[in-house]
Design a protein around this nucleic acid. Structure first.
Lengths: 146, 146
DNA sequence: CCTTGACCTCAAGTCAACTTCATTTCTTAG
DNA sequence: CTAAGAAATGAAGTTGACTTGAGGTCAAGG
């Protein structure tokens, strides 16, 4: 018998509204048991799961993608350190990529917007590798590495 | 008489769909003149403006915020280097902040998610400065500096 | 002149991620 | 035991940022 936490407390602890928690459940991101009177009771590990969801959202992942990531967790037991660490490590490249994108943006914005070249297809910020159209139309630099 | 560019070309050059350009106009982010036959004709400077909008979106700004930023540009003349540079500089802190947030995330994710402390309000990732509730409920670290 | 493709407008639709509402049921402190 | 406050449900509404659709106009090549 694990302590079971009501939705209000989970909401308070995670900063996620109760309505959002119900929504997450309807979307298959989290689960709950029910009390005698049909109210949700959460396993403490669910709080970690919810924190994970929030962090993932900060990274720009959609709930769909997050659910997919969460599906790699074991269902028959409470996820342990190793499980979570594995998940976290998968994000490393994604985080590095985002940081790189922002650094490029920062380092070039002044000169690039300032000089007006942001309007040209030859701009390094907009087309870092000069491969125009290689990934469909439009500026792409900010998303792609040098 | 400045060369006036039709919407399709602007779309092609910026990678923004024509429908989106019309939408931006309806939202007051860009403007256009009209041809004899009532078709939109854009000033070349508008392309730079649109690129700016795209970059700003990458930074997570809403169109509302972007419009506000753009309103600081002069309306009676084509914005020059100085105008754009000033705008770009305003973003510097914002970009730095985002980079910082991601670096903190990267540096702590392994240990933090791994050890399970992500579920606790004392976690550094979730509450870096231990000022619980100082900005409303919920984890905030990823958004705030050390 | 005709056809094709680019444009026009306005209304409505879409998608993600929730929130709000109305109504009913639990749970718990006094 | 009772009243207040927390929770449940299902449907509908919201917000941001566009896209799609219907029905009509414009512009250019053959």
């Amino acid at each position: 018998m694990v302590p079971e936490i009501p939705i209000g407390i989970v909401s308070e602890r995670t900063g996620v509204a109760s309505s959002a928690l119900r929504y997450y459940e309807s979307e298959g991101l989290i689960s709950s048991e029910r009390s005698e009177g049909n109210q949700r009771r959460y396993h403490p590990a669910t709080i970690r799961r919810i924190s994970f969801i929030k962090v993932a959202q900060q990274l720009g992942l959609t709930l769909d993608e997050i659910r997919e990531a969460l599906e790699s967790l074991p269902e028959n037991r409470t996820p342990n350190e190793r499980d979570w660490t594995r998940l976290a490590r998968n994000w490393r490249p994604r985080i590095d990529e985002q940081i790189g994108m922002l650094e490029r943006l920062r380092d070039r914005l002044d000169g690039c917007i300032g000089c007006g070249c942001l309007s040209l297809r030859t701009c390094k910020l907009v087309n870092p590798d000069d491969q125009l159209g290689s990934h469909g139309p439009g500026p792409r630099t900010i998303i792609e590495p040098d």
